[in-house]
């Protein structure tokens, strides 16, 4: 099944680069380079087998991840890269195991208090605004271009202002998150509320359904795929907003605070530990929303195909 030319080109290129590096470095460097390359080849071969087999294809990303981690570990140890620049994965794992209380405290401060509360308030407010905007065509035509414009702006820039207004604690972080998620959510929800077809609207009309009945029974369910799209975009934005807002001032806990102070102390293993926590939190957040979406919009074509 190794028919795809890309892989062959990739392998050839990798081989040439490795040999060049090995020749240039000589001695131990050469050995390490060859070892790193060997790990990569093994990973690729396993993945080729998985891709060809069809069964167990879900493992392919896992194999790639392990391959990359292996290469990272080997390269850092082999080339003697200072832990101040890039700590090996094993050191990061040790650090995570060793400082669970700190990580948990930061997680609660940033994710639960800052990001989650802002996310709920922002998305809720955007949904309500969307229903109002949808009711009045004039508002829709006026607000939608403005909303689209604001959604493309570097909204993160208002973080210092909001920190100035709401103080250093989690309230200001939640405020940043509210502003960041509001417009993407609004644009998606308004789009979704318009997603019904004339035929469906006519059917509701023949049932003598009023505005509210039609809204609850037809247009809100029809808007769900768009709403979930907005919720997914907002979930990553929320985490970023809460962490970056902490760079402009925060109490002595929180992921953003820990990252910026640990960089100053050159404790990069703690920084990476926070990054791992943030990545897990972000993926879990996104995954949870995707799961709810699957449950609630099972009727939509994008969900049926799987």
């Amino acid at each position: 099944m190794i028919r795809s030319p890309i892989i062959l080109i990739e392998a050839a290129l990798g081989l040439v680069l490795t040999l060049l590096a090995a020749v240039a470095l000589g001695g131990q460097g050469a050995l390490v380079t060859v070892l790193v390359f060997a790990v990569w080849i093994i990973g690729t071969l396993i993945n080729l087998r998985l891709a060809a087999g069809g069964r167990g294809a879900g493992l392919a990303p896992l194999v790639l991840g392990l391959t990359l981690l292996g290469m990272w570990e080997l390269a850092v140890r082999g080339f003697g890269i200072s832990p101040v620049i890039l700590p090996p994965p094993s050191a990061i794992a040790v650090r995570i195991a060793g400082s669970l209380p700190i990580l948990w405290e930061d997680f609660v401060q940033t994710v639960i208090k800052g990001a989650l509360s802002g996310y709920v308030i922002g998305c809720g407010a955007a949904l309500i605004t969307a229903v109002i905007v949808d009711r009045f065509d004039f508002l829709r035509r006026g607000l939608l271009p403005v909303g689209n414009f604001v959604a493309a702006l570097p909204v993160i820039g208002i973080a210092p202002i909001l920190v100035m207004w709401f103080g250093f604690d989690w309230q200001s972080k939640a405020a940043v998150v509210v502003v960041m998620v509001f417009f993407p959510m609004l644009v998606n929800a308004v789009e979704g509320l318009r997603a019904t077809e004339p035929m469906q609207r006519d059917l509701m009309h023949t049932y003598a359904a009023g505005y509210w009945t039609a809204l609850v029974k037809m247009r809100l369910p029809a808007a769900l795929p768009f709403v979930f799209n907005g919720l997914k975009i907002a979930s990553t934005l929320a985490l970023i907003g809460a962490i970056v807002a902490e760079f402009f001032g925060s109490p002595i806990r929180g992921m953003g605070f820990r990252i910026s102070t640990s960089v100053g102390l050159l404790a990069l293993d703690l920084v990476w530990a926070e990054i791992v926590v943030a990545a897990i939190a972000g993926s879990a957040f996104y995954g949870a929303i995707a799961l709810i979406e699957k449950r609630m919009t099972f009727w939509h074509p994008s969900q049926r195909g799987r």
Partner: peptide, 26 residues
């Protein structure tokens, strides 16, 4: 390439759940 589709695509998506802006200073 099917191999890249299977193995790289999930990591491209996962890469975006890391709040890169948050580690930009580092």
């Amino acid at each position: 390439s099917r191999v890249m589709d299977l193995s790289v695509m999930p990591w491209v998506i996962a890469s975006q759940t890391i709040p890169i802006l948050a580690i930009a200073p580092m």
